[in-house]
Nucleic acid binder design. Structure first.
Ligand SMILES: [Mn+2]
Ligand SMILES: [Mn+2]
Ligand SMILES: [Zn+2]
Ligand SMILES: [Zn+2]
Lengths: 140, 140
DNA sequence: ACAATAAACGCAACTTTGTTGCATTTTCCA
DNA sequence: TGGAAAATGCAACAAAGTTGCGTTTATTGT
């Protein structure tokens, strides 16, 4: 139910010391309700007519939500960020899957934990970013 | 020596049924001489004054070189493609490393070959794209 | 309830990266 | 060496995202 996501969103925002504005609540509720990682454009599309929101405000709200660790953003080969709520299941680092036909992005659960990526001498490991590409069930 | 790379570049281009124009030879020679994956901008910068080349021509030449499998391009989180010559060592799929401070990108040799990324039912695996992030030796 | 204040917003302009259409030039081969 | 196909240059366009700044709004203390 949408109202539940809105309540959850509002609480999460306030718990992080931010102002619970209509825009932020709406955006986070959309991301909480969505199981795929979606683009700025797609979020804009899903916003109700009752909640007009400037492009820039949307960008800034997303930036804030990422900072506060309420959502994460995914790099893609089409040069478009995709955003997804941080759920417990996907608590930390995880890989992503991107359909090469419909561009849909989902979060996977694994990530190769081994840090012995034998980097050149003097290099320091920080994190891994991994995308599995293929066809989703709809596009197969 | 630059001249060697130019000769190699010319031969590679002709072996692939393409016209060995000054632009293509110059671009491929630059990429053969470079051990890092570099951006369109960086390639433009490295072009000698004696070889002025339009932005668009550079883009199209890079596209052609990728098609012919003479170079590969790397996705990055800064929305900028980076290009690198295909050497035997890095023959096919491989991971990349990107410095989070200076944005330098190098090619790594490994890639987790296991395809059991237990994707959702009905999904089909195609390929993996993996970037290790961290600090390079200069930035540590 | 209400005013003060800092945070968030909206708008316009800008930047960066990459693409497209089309006329002109160049390469290659017969 | 001339003609066809390929490659180039230029101008215009497009998409995604950023910046500056004046205005509005959520929160807090009274
Ligand atoms: Mn994810
Ligand atoms: Mn590489
Ligand atoms: Zn799909
Ligand atoms: Zn570095």
């Amino acid at each position: 139910m949408t109202i539940d996501f809105r309540n959850a969103a509002e609480e999460l925002i306030q718990h992080n010391g931010g102002r619970a504005t209509a825009g932020r609540i709406g955006i986070l509720a959309i991301l909480l309700a969505e199981q795929h990682a979606i683009t700025h454009r797609e979020i804009e599309h899903r916003l109700p007519e009752s909640l007009p929101l400037d492009r820039v405000t949307l960008y800034r709200a997303l930036e804030w939500l990422v900072e506060k660790n309420l959502i994460h953003k995914v790099t893609s080969d089409d040069r478009v960020w995709r955003y997804h709520a941080n759920r417990e299941v996907h608590a930390h680092r995880h890989a992503h899957f991107k359909c090469t036909r419909c561009a849909q992005v989902i979060c996977l659960d694994d990530l190769p934990e081994k840090r012995n990526w034998h980097l050149p001498a003097g290099y320091r490991f920080q994190e891994i970013e991994l995308t599995v590409k293929g066809l989703c069930a709809d596009c197969c």
